[in-house]
Nucleic acid binder design. Structure first.
Length: 466
DNA sequence: CCACGTACACCC
DNA sequence: AAACGGGTGTACGTGG
């Protein structure tokens, strides 16, 4: 049995064993800040988001007329109602148009069916490779991407604000089985960031007059927890030396020198590399670091060779199933042998007991892991493999929230959002730097682990700038 | 008209 | 109860 651990507030407990008292204390400790987040709400710049909405509508008009200009008098053949007008928003219509009428897939190509097998899949991911096969494909993809941003964000959020233009999301504390918070009405944990246009939506979330937004987020927190729980020597060394874990993985796998790679990366990003060095860097980044990063990201989710192949394909790297299989089992886990042992231990614990436990003692039931049907069993072990890291990471942030709330009250800081590894607050301008430093310090020191946990902070007037 | 299942897309 | 863990919300299509 492992030794006892003392937490920030003087609480002592034994890690990794079921401990409902500890979980209750953790969950309840975060409630005052959650309540404050609900009360304050985040301010929305209404004219800004309305202008963005108009821009998106205009873009969509362009995409739709462009698409239709290539489709002649095409109409959808409905099983009951005969020919009806083509609806660019209907997946059924798109499937019939592209794969039955235009046959953009060519001959002898196996198309992927939806899970229920009703029709062919027409997601952006599926359609993407067919951009060159018909001029309507591109505009349709773009139209749908705009449709998502408009329907979910730019046209909806302005209608949900209070008299002071503030949005009060609801943080649900009993929904996620890992103990994470979830956010609804509206969900402010899924505001776009990945695409250029999507990220502009974050520009609509602003500080209050005379104040600024302060954000702090944990670096690679689930990997840090994996390092702590597994005691894998390479992982420990990565975080103790403040290295980038994906770059380190790459160096271990391909036999490169870490400092040279880190230096090359720094100089490339500062535009200080010559042509030859730039080419070397881009090769390193695309063909060596990217696969390592993808595996590193997927491994805690129980990613299979098929999953890796699909992820890499979306990045333009086409590997065979055998290559993916070998990369995970031999290359990656040759570096992180201790991580493999930890995951296998978690799997066998789940198979034996039908449950899994995080660092703080939060239990998740995974009865599927006791099944004799292989694919059901795999479902269970995947959940079991991910739970300790996700749940422990979440628990650590809840401790930070408990510690920070009294500080926020003393400094007149308004907590606004929690996004799993990140806290955003609204802070008086004069206190911003001091508060940002305190916030970061608390997040880094809430839980004593074998490796330092790193948090970084940002100060800005708009969420987009954080 | 409404409730629901489905497919899809956004986040960490 | 598929193939990558955890979430929320939307439009479409169908059936009561």
């Amino acid at each position: 049995m492992s030794a006892q651990v003392q937490l920030f507030g003087g609480v002592v407990f034994s890690p990794n064993v079921p401990n409902p008292e500890n979980v209750r204390r953790l969950d309840h400790g975060a409630l005052p800040m959650i309540a404050a987040m609900h009360r304050h709400g985040i301010r929305l710049d209404i004219p800004y988001i309305q202008a963005l909405n108009v821009r998106i509508v205009d873009l969509q008009r362009g995409y739709e007329s462009e698409a239709r200009s290539w489709l002649g008098r095409y109409q959808y053949r409905h099983a009951k109602h005969g020919y009806i007008p083509f609806n660019i928003g209907s997946r059924d219509h798109l499937a019939q148009l592209f794969f039955e009428e235009l046959r953009i897939q060519g001959d002898g190509v196996e198309l992927k069916r939806t899970p229920t097998g009703k029709r062919e899949e027409v997601s952006a991911e599926i359609l993407e490779p067919y951009r060159d096969r018909h001029p309507a494909v591109g505009p349709v993809i773009e139209w749908h991407s705009c449709e998502k941003l408009r329907n979910t964000y730019t046209s909806v959020l302005p209608g949900l604000v209070d008299s002071e233009s503030r949005l009060h999301t609801k943080f649900n504390v009993t929904v996620a089985s890992t103990g994470r918070l979830s956010s609804s009405n509206p969900n402010l944990q899924n505001i776009p960031i990945r695409t250029k246009l999507g990220k502009e939506i974050r520009g609509a979330f602003v500080c209050s007059p005379g104040r600024v937004l302060v954000s702090a987020d944990m670096a690679q927190i689930e990997m840090v927890w994996a390092a702590h729980r597994s005691q894998d020597p390479v992982m420990l060394s990565v975080f103790r030396n403040r290295q980038d874990i994906h770059t380190r993985t790459t160096c271990e796998v391909f036999g490169l020198d870490y400092e040279k790679c880190a230096d090359l990366t720094r100089r490339y990003e500062a535009k200080q590399t010559n042509e030859e060095e730039s080419a070397a860097y881009l090769y390193f980044k695309q063909f060596q670091r990217l696969p390592c990063k993808t595996v590193g990201f997927g491994v805690l989710y129980g990613q299979t060779a098929e999953g890796l192949q699909k992820s890499l394909a979306s990045e333009g790297i086409h590997w065979t199933l055998e290559q993916c299989e070998k990369f995970i089992t031999q290359d990656f886990f040759a570096v992180y042998g201790g991580l493999r042992v930890m995951l296998e231990d978690d799997y066998s614990f789940a198979r034996r007991y039908g449950m899994v436990v995080d660092y703080f003692g939060r239990v998740r039931l995974v009865p599927e892991a006791k099944s004799n049907l292989k694919w059901i069993n795999n479902e269970g072990t995947r959940k079991a493999g991910n739970h300790p890291e996700q749940s422990s990471a979440q628990g650590g942030l809840k401790l930070s929230m408990a510690e920070l709330q009294p500080i926020c009250e003393r400094m007149d800081v308004w907590p606004l959002l929690q996004i799993h590894d990140q806290l955003i607050s609204d802070c008086p301008v004069g206190l911003a730097q001091e508060f940002a430093d305190v916030k970061t310090w608390v997040m880094e020191h809430s839980v004593p682990l074998s490796v330092p946990t790193r948090a970084s902070n940002d100060i800005g007037e708009r969420w987009m700038d954080l």
